[in-house]
Design a protein around this nucleic acid. Sequence first.
DNA 1: ATGAAAGCGCTAACAC
DNA 2: GTGTTAGCGCTTTCAT
Lengths: 336, 336
Amino acid sequence: MAVRLQDVADYAGVSMKTVSNVVRDYPHVSPKMRERVQRAIDELGYRPNIMGRRLATGRTGLLALAFADVRIPYFAELAQVVANEAERRGYRVLLEQTEGTLEGERAVVSASESGLVDGMVIQPSVMNSTELAQSRTDIPIVVLGENAAPLTLDSVMVDNVEAARVATRHVLAHGRRRIAFAGHEETGTTRTSTLRIAGYQQALEEAGIIPDPHLLIPSLAVTAANGARAVGAALDAGLRFDGLVCRDDLAAIGALRALEERGFRVPDDVVITGWDNTPMTEVTYPSLTSIAPDMRALASRALDMLFERIDGYDGMGRHELVPFSLVTRESAPAVE
Amino acid sequence: MAVRLQDVADYAGVSMKTVSNVVRDYPHVSPKMRERVQRAIDELGYRPNIMGRRLATGRTGLLALAFADVRIPYFAELAQVVANEAERRGYRVLLEQTEGTLEGERAVVSASESGLVDGMVIQPSVMNSTELAQSRTDIPIVVLGENAAPLTLDSVMVDNVEAARVATRHVLAHGRRRIAFAGHEETGTTRTSTLRIAGYQQALEEAGIIPDPHLLIPSLAVTAANGARAVGAALDAGLRFDGLVCRDDLAAIGALRALEERGFRVPDDVVITGWDNTPMTEVTYPSLTSIAPDMRALASRALDMLFERIDGYDGMGRHELVPFSLVTRESAPAVE
DNA sequence: ATGAAAGCGCTAACAC
DNA sequence: GTGTTAGCGCTTTCAT
């Protein structure tokens, strides 16, 4: 039905090899031959069949990108930038969602079929990198947002501890002393949250403040609605604070609503920082100061390392940090 | 390197055919043989190679999902539900982003390679369905959110006109009379926006109100920030309204900010409705009343039709509507 | 119920 | 510079 390489070869009166050379822009083809073949290709409307090519080369041109849920704005952002970077390298991206559960992550990682993708970029929610490294040995994996065990896995992340210190110091610079932390998981705190809380506590201690565990406000899951519920419940229970460092923008957005609903003013009564610098931060009222990871660098370095491994590099796991910045907006304005 | 079907066959002392039968759960295999082969598979850790299988069967098990940008919450939602429905049918989803441009859509649709995906679900931003139908004839396509020309393309959408009437009538029921519409594109209104504006105007006319073109507030692009700018500028220019039907939730979120920033109160001064019922509507302050398309039905019907075509159905294009509802929240509460 | 062999569409040695 | 041919890993008639 579809026109094949052989059809073009027959039509142009040349061999498959020559047509293949033209299709793949192989340099050593005479101009007139190239033109003749190209005409045949155009007239027949030939399109190379990926599967045939992939079988022959062993490369699929496909990458898997795995994370909890695209509906979480940070992951949508990640999908966008990874897809862009992949495209620049001639690759396409297969979305794999894990729902943030261990089963989901296991399912994604222990693929029952092989040869679909050449590599995988994964931001695990719960699985540790040791298990990760053991599950999928047939293709290279780059881990995002978590320091991978130094086996064959590479990792890229921002320095969560440092970034949390920066955010917290910024709140301190506003003269706030009772600073809460919101949005980490209620059950089984993830590594990401642990690191951010560590940075938050370090900054407090550096300022001579003893971290008060009551000021840690966990929420059920990473949604803004849960963030609102958690912060709302804390306020209703009488908890008071004048600064709030949030685990992510969703928690911050939820906190914003919980506070306003109860008559607290941001930033006058409570200074707030978010994390991820997702598009929504610009348009909440007040807009949100947020930690902005360099997403482009993140995706770019992750794919660099992934392709090095696809190309055969076989050294120890490499662990890279990418830059971040604090973008100040109304919820915690810049301080002179 | 990787273990192949032949390796398993050798190891188990049977033919490839038998192993293949076991792998694919072919019914006519004797239990003892099945067990023997299964043990070989387990011991060798055999995983069938997708590409080999696909080449042989002609099915890739992959679907393309194309739309403007995953960072737009509605599309993230769409990606999520389509991925889920596809998985239930044993398929995976390849993300294709068009950036909402004609070039982007053309690039996605006029794939230079064939055989990668078995079908495509696309929500076009600018390309009309006639061009769509002509561009990609090798695989079936289902169009979302736009009434496809009745060639070989199927389409699924909500009744945009009717939904816009429902939203507008709800605002009218609040006793509002100067009702604006916000968030449609400034340049080259999309078909979606056109339909929604039509429904909005119909509802006004039914209520005996002559639609005032000044109350149409376009914005530069579908982001909340642009929505805020557009509505803000309109207010600053002296435009006044007591109701606002928004093209989508992003526009509504932007409008919310623009209004609050200028001291207008929602819903007291202005009643607002959004569209898409994205997660953020729950947690804005005030929360947003929004048109909620039945996303599950949308994805489910789209994939049903797509698979019918993949399986050989070759009739005229079918055009289906899926249900929607109006979810009332604080920005436009339910009216008794 | 199981085996043998012919492809699926393409690339890559290797020859000419 | 171009043609020949042998796979890539799997499924699938067709035999047995």
